[in-house]
Amino acid sequence: MKTEKIILKNETGLHARPASEIAKIASKYQCTINLIVNDKTINAKSILNIMAAGIKSSTEIEIQCDGTDEEAALAELLQAFNNNFGE
């Protein structure tokens, strides 16, 4: 399993557009991908799960990828987070 912690910079939090970005990326990979926020586990392949978590800006998020393509998945997700989802 690969994990990495980041702080959400996106100013408006994980609203529909960034949530859909994450779910879109996550769904491309075989491995299980979870976001851990305040001890809650969120399925990163589910836009509803991500949005329902209501993650605000400056929150710490741990990305966990577990499976064959975990490395590539983590790398692409990190890049999306670091680019602020193009916002």
């Binding site: 529909a16 557009r17 859909s20 779910a23 879109k24 399925n43 589910s46 836009i47 509803l48 799960n49």
Partner: peptide, 16 residues
Amino acid sequence: KEIMTAYLMIMQDPSL
């Protein structure tokens, strides 16, 4: 397109 894409993904989300 962005709005409709998010809407479509909600629709396709298994947890829905």
